[in-house]
Amino acid sequence: MSGHRGDRVHGRRAYGGVLVIPCQLNEAYRYWFLADTGTAMTMLSQQVAEEIGLDLSRPVRHERIASVHQVAQAPILRLSSLQVGSQRATNIEVLVLSLPPDLRVDGLLGVNFLEQFRPTFEFDQATLVLR
């Protein structure tokens, strides 16, 4: 993890009040992710995994995942970096799963990233503060 502390990362409120945040992967690829404290592990869409060149045939391992309506298996891979604002986590594990096409974000920013900071959600400002 690197970068100075106390970043205010401006995102957007989407329908229902959820907060979406721009995230940069491997120092080159930026996408909107939904910030989700109910998601244990940061998740990428299969399109993102393909774009950034993750080899889905060689996952670190598989994990059982439980969402509100199903339990399934999903591959876990590793990013060299995930950066939000100037706060960066390196060598971080991510799940790769299909996202509903109607959901126009490319991933979920989960607890395995957020727990490395002291995150504060300022919903009225559409801002995620990472200390």
């Binding site: 989407a14 229902g16 120092e27 989700d36």
Partner: peptide
Amino acid sequence: PGIKTFVFYAGPKVPEGLVVVL
């Protein structure tokens, strides 16, 4: 090599009427 890209949907990131419960 070395460029930075941003892929996104130009519009609401969650469409009106879609309640997200993941």
